[in-house]
Design a protein around this nucleic acid. Sequence first.
DNA 1: ATTGACAGGCTAACGTTGTTAGCCTACGGT
DNA 2: ACCGTAGGCTAACAACGTTAGCCTGTCAAT
Lengths: 184, 184
Amino acid sequence: MAETPAGTSPALTERQRQIAAAARALLDAEGPEGLTMRRVADALGIKAPSLYKHVPDKTALELLVVAEGFVEVAEALEAATVSAPDPLAALAKAYRDYAIAHPHLYRLMNYQPLRRDLLPDGVEERAAMPLLKAVGHDGDRARALWAFAHGMVSLEIDGRFPPDADLPAAWAAGLRTFVQELRS
Amino acid sequence: MAETPAGTSPALTERQRQIAAAARALLDAEGPEGLTMRRVADALGIKAPSLYKHVPDKTALELLVVAEGFVEVAEALEAATVSAPDPLAALAKAYRDYAIAHPHLYRLMNYQPLRRDLLPDGVEERAAMPLLKAVGHDGDRARALWAFAHGMVSLEIDGRFPPDADLPAAWAAGLRTFVQELRS
DNA sequence: ATTGACAGGCTAACGTTGTTAGCCTACGGT
DNA sequence: ACCGTAGGCTAACAACGTTAGCCTGTCAAT
C-alpha cells in the first residue's frame, strides 16, 4: 500500500493506466453494461480478482475513467474558447460535441455524485475555468449556464426531446440571455 | 395474456397497483439499491418469481413507478401555476421542490431514455403543459427552460455544485432571461 | 356434477455481477 | 542466501434478474 497523503493526487502506476484505458475502451464501445470487472480483466489478459491488486473497487476504477474524461473535456473547452469570435457559443458547442461523442462517459461523469476526494486535485476546477471565463467570472451565471448546457445535453443524449424538436433553436433561446447580459 | 391494443393505456390490475406502491416505497426509502425484485416481492408477502405473473420484467416494474411520478409532477406543476403572480418562478420552484422531495424517483424518471411506448398515453404531455403555458407556447423556449431546470435540479441532487454555491441566485440568473423575453 | 382452463402462487435453478480469501511465484534488496 | 512483496491465480460467496416447471384454487362451460 503506497503512502498517499490525503488530498494529494495518487500518481497512477503503469498498470492503473492500462486498466483505465481498457475500461474506457469498453465503456465507449459497449456502454456501461460492457464495463465489468471481468471484461476489463480479460482485455488485459488477467483474471478479475487480480484487478483488486491495483484498484480498491469498481467505483474507483470508474473514477480513473472519469478523471481522464475531465481532462479531455477541459482540453476541448480550452481549445474551443481560445480566440473564438463568440466564446460563449463556441463553449456551448464544444461541450455538446464532447458529450455527443462520448455519451456513456458523459453519463458516468455527470449522472451521479462525484467522489471529489478521490479525484486528482484541480481537475474539476480546470474544466470549469473556460466556463467561468466565458461568462465574465460571475459564479451564479456560470452555474446557470452549466446547468442549462448539462440539461440540454443530457436530455438530448437520453432521447427525451421529441424527435421533431429544433435543438439548435432551443440552444439559441437559452443562450440568448447569457450573451445579452454579457454585453450590458 | 390480456389483449392490450398497441398504443392504449394498459389499465392496471389491483396487484399491479400494489406492486407499484411497494416499489415506490422502497425506492423513496432506500434508493435504487433497495429496489430489487426480491425486496418488492417480500413487501407483498410473495416470492420474487411470482412478480413475473404481473409484470414482464424489472424495467416494466420501474415504469409503473415512473408513470406514477409523472402524474404527481403534473399535478404539482398545475397546482403551483394556477393563479400564481409570477407563474414562471412558481413553476420552477414547484419543479425543484418535487425533485428535492423525491430524488431517487426523479433520477429514475429523468436519468435515462424513457420508454414512451409503455407509458400511459398523455402522461408526458400533461406534465409538459404547465411549462408550455408558462413560457407562452414557444416550444424552443419551453425546451430551453426545461433543460435549465433539469440541469439545476439534477446537479443539485447529485451534489455537484460547490457547497458554498448560492443556488437561488443561480436560478435567478437563469430565469431572468425567460422572464425578460416574456415581457417583451 | 364434472371437467377444464387459467390465475397466481411456489421451489429450484441458472447465469452474471462485484468481491474476498488464500495460495503461489518471481524478483529485488539486505 | 534469504525474505518480503508485487502481482498473478483458483475457488467461492452473496445478491441480482430471470426461467422452468409444478401445484392449487376458482370459476365457467358442458
